[in-house]
Nucleic acid binder design. Structure first.
Length: 493
DNA sequence: TTTTGAGTTGTTCGA
DNA sequence: GTCGAACAACTCAAA
């Protein structure tokens, strides 16, 4: 690999874009001359949300993968710690960079940090240039004709599609020229030095068995999905036991793959007849939901804490019950589909989308616990915990979100289980103590005849819990709570 | 400006 | 067993 001190040096600040292909900032850096690629672990700047445990695990391996790939082409990757507004300018100065590039972020604190960095760099006469490397269309690109910003998904979707496809993805740079010179970077540390991996105890075995973070694996998953699950995506995507979803979410979260790459290749699969256009657009629409969540995060920076619909400030949640919360977190609610989902999450760092809705609805409506408790748990345990999608979807379930589920839509965990996991295969794979229960009873063990339970080796209340709440009772309680909220709202008006 | 129709993902009840 | 209506009211987008 050529090293060249005669070309200009550009600092490439990697963040949620841990890939080499279709990375506009990195492409720009490589095309300008030599590149100094860095990742900053910033626990110092104000307002940044600390990553959850599962995300930290993913980040570690994703950084390892990126570092290895850059190093293999002769371009060392640097990991630094510190507060961005100090450390980025310091690194630029120490390395003699003439420019600094990155892909934009959308959270309020992140934007503030990036702005502070820009100001510092510009005062040092170091050029800054930023790009959209994360979304199909950025907030502000998709706007209603009447002005303002979209608050309902369908019009947003139509407007997004009307813009036409985003530009074609960029290839990875053909040549990457490394910085050549003394490299004593301020704040430099090692990947291990970040301490992102769990130690005592090491709970990551299930994650290791399930995932391989990194751009090459993301590309491989995408291609496998396009040739497999996409064909029946519309029908099978709601069946948690089937391999019908793309499983790309954590890769997308850390930017190991770009939404442009996903959408373009999915549409190619539609064009060459691998899948029908209808299936392709269903899948693409899911990617556009992500853009919508980012739009809402931009207009409502406190999405993770404040109900989008302020009427929900008055929602009468039950007195926080540590017992119920704990039962939900650990998958001990007595509702098999709920427990399977929560255990899948704990074990693998991800949960099937359909089951996320069921478990989230259960927390908020059956247990009447604050959606923020659930959002925080998912934030800690999901590999794909996304700063926009996670709070956005929790608010959607809770009914407080943009274009949210109507309040009376209360998932019945039994019916959902029977409908979407009819054979019980999903339940069996994550709730082994029910594995020998026939499909007829797998979603209602409390109603199973005594001899059937005995034959399956189940003692309710001992080997598997009785339901911690009764569905009908809980449903009526949730409806009553919402009626109370409405009354409180009207009394005020 | 006003009006109108629509709005991811469901469940229950009664005819 | 099947089917349609009710479950609220409201806000938003677009004509």
């Amino acid at each position: 690999m050529a090293k060249n001190t005669s070309t200009t040096l550009t600092l490439m600040w990697f963040r949620d874009d841990l890939r080499l292909s279709d990375n506009p900032a990195f492409y720009e850096a490589a095309s300008r001359g030599s590149v100094l690629p860095i990742y900053l672990w910033d626990e110092r700047s104000e307002g940044l949300r600390a990553l959850g445990g599962a995300s930290r695990w993913w980040l570690h391996h994703s950084l390892a993968s990126l570092a290895e790939r850059l190093t293999s082409v002769g371009c060392p990757f640097h990991i630094v710690t510190g507060a961005a507004a100090e450390i980025i300018p310091a690194i630029a100065a120490a390395s003699g960079a003439v420019a600094c590039v990155w892909n934009r972020r959308y959270g309020q604190a992140e934007r503030a940090v990036d702005k502070a960095v820009t100001t510092r760099l510009q005062s040092m006469e170091i050029e800054t240039k930023t790009f959209n490397g994360t979304l199909l269309h950025e907030p502000g690109e998709v706007t209603p004709k009447a002005g303002g910003s979209f608050k309902v998904y369908t019009p947003f979707l139509r407007a997004s599609l009307a813009l036409g496809p985003p530009g074609p993805p960029l290839a990875a740079p053909k040549t990457i020229t490394a910085h050549d010179g003394p490299l004593e970077l301020p704040g430099e540390t090692s990947l291990e030095g970040l301490g992102l991996l769990p130690t005592a105890p090491d709970w990551s075995a299930g994650l290791r068995d399930t995932w391989q973070p990194g751009e090459p694996q993301a590309q491989k998953l995408l291609h496998g999905f396009l040739e497999g699950g996409l064909r029946r995506y519309g029908e099978d995507r709601n069946r948690p036991a089937l391999p019908a979803s793309s499983r790309l979410s954590p890769h997308l979260r850390f930017g190991e793959i770009s939404p442009r790459q996903i959408v373009m290749l999915a549409r190619h699969a539609g064009a060459d007849g691998t899948a029908s256009g209808e299936q392709v657009e269903k899948f693409v629409s899911e990617v556009i939901w992500r853009d919508f969540a980012y739009l809402l995060l931009t207009s409502h920076p406190d999405l993770a804490n404040k109900p989008f619909n302020s009427a929900f400030e008055k929602f009468p949640y039950a007195k926080a019950s540590p017992t119920h919360l704990r039962a939900w977190q650990t998958g001990q609610t007595g509702y098999p589909i709920v427990d399977a989902g929560m255990r899948q999450l704990w074990k693998t760092g991800v949960m099937h989308n359909r089951v996320r809705m069921i478990t989230a609805s259960f927390l908020v409506k059956h247990l009447l616990l604050d959606w923020r408790l659930g959002e925080q748990w998912f934030w800690d345990t999901l590999c794909d915990a996304d700063p926009a999608s996670n709070p956005f979807n929790w608010q959607w379930v809770a009914g407080s979100g943009a274009d949210a589920a109507p309040y009376f839509r209360i998932f019945n965990p039994t019916l959902q289980g029977e409908k979407f996991d009819p054979d019980g295969d999903y339940v069996r794979s994550f709730v082994p103590e029910l594995a020998r229960l026939p499909a007829r009873w797998i979603h209602t063990p409390w109603a199973a005849p005594r001899d059937i339970l005995a034959a399956a080796g189940i003692t309710l209340g001992k080997t598997y819990p009785q339901p911690i709440v009764d569905h009908d009772t809980a449903r009526l309680r949730a409806l009553a709570a919402l009626a109370d909220m409405r009354q409180a709202e009207q009394a005020e008006a």
